[in-house]
Structures are given as C-alpha cells and as structure tokens.
Simulated scan of single mutants.
Amino acid sequence: MDKQRTHFGYQEVPTEEKASRVADVFHSVAARYDVMNDLMSFGIHRVWKRLTLERAGVRPGQRVLDIAGGTGDLTLKLAERVGENGRVVLADINASMLKVGRDKLLDKGVGGNVEYVQANAECLPFPDNSFDCITIAFGLRNVTDKDAALRSMTRVLKPGGRLLILEFSKPESQVLSKIYDEYSFRLLPKIGELVANDAASYRYLAESIRMHPDQETLKGMMENAGLERVEYQNMTGGIVALHRGIKL
C-alpha cells in the first residue's frame, strides 16, 4: 500500500487521518467501554488480562508502562504488584479514555504510584531504558505505524525488560473463524448500538481485528524491532494471542 495511505478497518484512508478517526471511535465508546468489554467477551477478557499479568512477572519497586491503558484494568493490578516504591505509567493517546481510567482508579483508591500520560505509542515521550516492563492490551491494532511503535517501545525498555502485547489475532480453526466472523459482523455492531448507541464504532473494531497481523507476522515484527526470545501463546482458540519479547 502507498505509504501515504493506510487501513482504517476495511477502508483505505490518508495516513495522517487515521489517528484522528481512531480517536473519534474511542471518544465515542469511552464511557461504556468497560461494560462493552464484559458483554463482547462474555467476561473472558479478565482471564486474558490475568494471564498477561502473570507472564509480565512484575516485582515490587519496578517501573512499568501500560500503553493504550484505557480504563486502567491492567494498571490497577500492576500498581498493586509494583507497590509504593514502584511506578506505573498509564499512557493513552485518547484523552477521553485516559480520563475514564484516571477517574476509575482514583475511585478505587489507587494513588501515588500511578502517573497518567497522554502519549502516542509511535513516539513515546520517555528516555531510553526507562521501564522494566511494558504492556499493551488491545491497543496495537489501532496504531497507524506498528513498526514505529514497536521500535519506540523497545527503546524505552531497560535491558532485560519485557514487552507484552495482548491482542486479538487469528483463530486456529476454520470452524471457529466462521463462528467468530458471524459474531463480529452481525452481533457485535447490534450490541454496540443497544448499549453504547454506536454501531459504527464497533463495526470498525471488528474490522480492525481482521486487518491486524497474524501471530507469526507480529512475532517477526517484534524481532525486527530488536526484541529477543519472542514467543506467543494463543488463548480461546487463537481469537486472542499474548506475545512476549525481551530487550537484551
């Protein structure tokens, strides 16, 4: 594809427009995002995130960056694990999502060890070698230049640091893939219309999943960004995959 154009779901749009279009989607869905997550995944997203936390191996006193952290599900648990001497930065490009996340965490009593930063994953505003661990859950597929984002994340990781990417991926069986397509394109926009009064945004989210690199392609992209010992684990039949790489 021409570098001046990129995908927005199944549409082809000017590259410089994608970020603002994605922003419009998440401004629209921010207030109902948590409710929709539970409905869309039947609550299974909590299991996926729990496994991500276990694989992150975060310890007290460490510095962690949660990119596209949205409403703060991972940040909340990461903050508990790093303790009062550690630090978690919840970063999101979208101000509406960041506000929802900050309000939710403050309501839950999360305080001094969490920082909130509006940031673009492609050009993170942090010094080299800043973080022991970086997580990004269901955010990479919305990034315009994924290779630039992976390089940026690798740059701000400390040597020995870990990047974990939790993202929708490619189902392992054709039968599951067909069922998943029916659900995504027929049922999901209807749920979005009923709950969030926004069918179009949820149609985009379904399309963006299909345009995201498959498991092996993403593994290769992480290696090209400079990460080592990259591996992935399929969950729920490959509907979701957890990739993990280390900066040596």
Rank of each mutant, 00 (worst) to 15 (best):
F185G: 10
M153P: 04
M211I: 09
G237A: 03
Q215K: 09
T75C: 02
R50K: 14
T15W: 09
E17R: 12
Q174T: 14
D181S: 11
A196V: 08
T15I: 09
A91M: 06
L163K: 00
V114H: 00
L74A: 03
L242M: 10
A23I: 13
Y204P: 09
A95T: 10
P189L: 11
P189T: 13
V13A: 02
H243P: 10
L39R: 04
L187Q: 03
S173T: 13
H27M: 15
M221E: 06
N85Y: 15
F131Q: 00
A148D: 08
A30G: 08
L106Q: 13
R151M: 09
F131V: 00
L76N: 07
T144Y: 12
E231Y: 12
Q215E: 10
S208R: 11
L39A: 05
A23S: 15
K146A: 13
E231T: 09
H27N: 12
R186Y: 15
A200W: 09
K3E: 15
G83T: 08
N234W: 14
R229P: 09
Y180M: 05
L39T: 05
A149M: 03
A19T: 13
G192N: 08
M153H: 06
D198P: 05
E231Q: 14
T15C: 07
V29M: 02
Y180L: 01
S177Y: 14
H27K: 08
N85K: 12
Y202M: 05
M1A: 07
T135I: 00
K18N: 05
G86C: 05
V89I: 06
V110G: 04
E231N: 12
E216Q: 11
V64G: 01
N94T: 03
V88R: 01
F8N: 00
A79D: 08
H45M: 07
H27A: 13
G112K: 10
L166W: 01
F138Q: 03
L194T: 08
